[in-house]
């Protein structure tokens, strides 16, 4: 028996409460999704870290640690890439507001915080932020290309 595999882009969604207790669940999903997309183990681990950082930012900064909100993850599998969209209705962040720390300066002047965005940008091929002030829906999009 043969099984036909659709080459159409596939996507699915997961909605979690804005609580850090679910981070492990989300990172596990991101790693598994990366493997399903065809990424190797090491790259899949990097994707899961990037997703952890993005969801943590939403919970702690966009929602200020309030646990009664929702964080929506949409995973899209295409022939070219794995896209992970993290959607929320907390405080938005636009791409032009993102300032990545310089690792060399960071090491000279150690401090807590500021490294999550850097890890996301290093581990993914593209990181995009969209803030829609009209609808209040905001998004962080993480893209990993399939070589």
């Amino acid at each position: 028996m043969s099984v036909a595999v659709s080459m159409e882009p596939a996507e699915f969604r997961l909605v979690i409460p804005s609580q850090t207790r679910y981070l492990n669940l989300v990172t596990g999903l991101a790693k598994r999704a990366s493997l399903v997309a065809g990424l190797d183990d090491a790259t899949s681990a990097k994707v899961s870290i990037a997703v952890d950082e993005a969801v943590t930012n939403v919970i702690l900064h966009a929602y200020h640690g309030e646990g009664e909100h929702s964080v929506e993850l949409e995973l899209r599998f295409t022939e070219q890439a794995l896209e992970i969209h993290i959607l929320h209705s907390g405080q938005g962040l636009r791409g032009d507001q993102v300032v990545l720390p310089d690792p060399k300066e960071y090491i000279k002047h150690p401090r807590k915080g500021g490294l999550g965005l850097l890890l996301m940008s290093r581990f993914m091929d593209e990181v995009r932020f969209k803030a829609d002030e009209v609808s209040g829906r905001n998004e962080c999009c993480l893209i990993k290309k399939l070589d």
């Binding site: 990172t27 681990a45 899961s48 870290i49 952890d52 950082e53 943590t56 150690p110 401090r111 807590k112 915080g113 500021g114 490294l115 999550g116 850097l118 890890l119």
Partner: peptide, 16 residues
Amino acid sequence: HYISSAGLGAIMGLIE
């Protein structure tokens, strides 16, 4: 198995 920037920050916070 895994450390995120939150954990790195904890180490950074005490190194000095």
